[in-house]
Computed example of a mutant assay.
Amino acid sequence: DLRNQLYESYYLNFISAISRSKLEDIANAALAASAVTQVAKVFDQYLNFITLEDDMFVLCNQNKELVSYRAINRPDITDTEMETVMDTIVDSLFCFFVTLVLVDRNIDLATPLHHTWTYQALVHDVLDFHLNRVNLEESSGVENSPAGARPKRKNKKSYDLTPVDKFWQKHKGSPFPEVAESVQQELESYRAQEDEVKRLKSIMGLEGEDEGAISMLSDNTAKLTSAVSSLPELLEKKRLIDLHTNVATAVLEHIK
């Protein structure tokens, strides 16, 4: 761009702090193109991370495998590769600390960076989890063929784990065994509410699924009114139960 004189002036913005050697390369290029006066400003934005939630951030890198736990612990990793990984992680963490946090230099920074046996950490470590969206491959059983039974083609599903998800907000920091128990408790609670709705319909003589008829009688039955009004919430609860059942099952398949 400097050589071709594409712009009247240049404002260079870098996600993370630019090294002195690269800054010298830019200066040499500007000199060679006689465009030194056109380089107005150079900014270090310290933005080499993404804040997904109020209390969670991830390191920003085009190749997420480069800064993964697996990359650091590969048995065949070379010293040069390890240095590259460490430099990338350090640069990203520096961007985070210099932008959002003031830290006493005596604090133990390693401890909060360790991944624990919690729901959120495991989802991040073992599943395809990126920008609060987890992608799963779910097998749909087996199919018969002349060669015998074989697994059916896997279906790909995506789920968003966001602050709107009440179960995720409540249990993302919980140990994984507790999450499994909580999913079961939520399922039992849902079934109890569902059975109550069916019981009320039976009492009112509405054995079928005619929700319109239920609404017509809701003015006369306080309990039925409450049950009908809670149906959207009940359906959302069932959706979240199914979501976290699938996610927790996928996590379990990886760690068992």
Rank of each mutant, 00 (worst) to 15 (best):
E8D: 09
S9E: 15
I15T: 13
A17F: 09
I26Q: 05
A27S: 13
A27D: 13
A29V: 08
L31K: 15
A32Q: 15
A33V: 02
A35I: 03
T37K: 15
Q38T: 13
Q38R: 14
V39S: 01
D44W: 08
Q45V: 01
L47T: 06
N48I: 01
F49E: 02
F57V: 09
C60K: 14
N63G: 00
L66I: 07
V67Y: 02
S68I: 07
Y69F: 15
P75H: 04
D76P: 02
I77M: 13
D79P: 07
T80K: 14
T80A: 09
T80M: 14
E83T: 07
T88E: 11
I89D: 05
V90C: 06
D91K: 12
F94I: 09
C95R: 03
C95Y: 01
F97E: 10
V101L: 15
R105I: 05
R105Q: 12
I107N: 06
L109Q: 04
A110G: 10
A110D: 13
T111W: 03
A121T: 01
D125L: 11
D125N: 10
F129Q: 01
L131T: 12
R133C: 05
E137Y: 10
E138G: 04
S139W: 06
S140T: 15
E143C: 00
A149W: 15
P151I: 06
S158I: 01
P163C: 00
V164G: 10
D165P: 02
F167D: 03
W168I: 00
K170D: 09
K170F: 03
H171I: 05
K172S: 10
K172R: 15
K172E: 02
S174D: 11
P177T: 01
E178F: 10
V179A: 08
Q184R: 12
L187C: 09
E194V: 03
D195T: 07
R199E: 13
G208E: 14
E209V: 15
E211K: 05
I214G: 05
S218Q: 10
S218H: 06
D219N: 07
K223W: 08
V228N: 05
S229M: 11
E233C: 03
E236N: 04
K238T: 04
I241V: 00
H244P: 00
H244M: 00
T245F: 08
N246G: 07
V247H: 04
A248Q: 05
V251F: 05
V251E: 03
L252E: 04
E253W: 00
E253N: 10
K256N: 14
K256R: 12
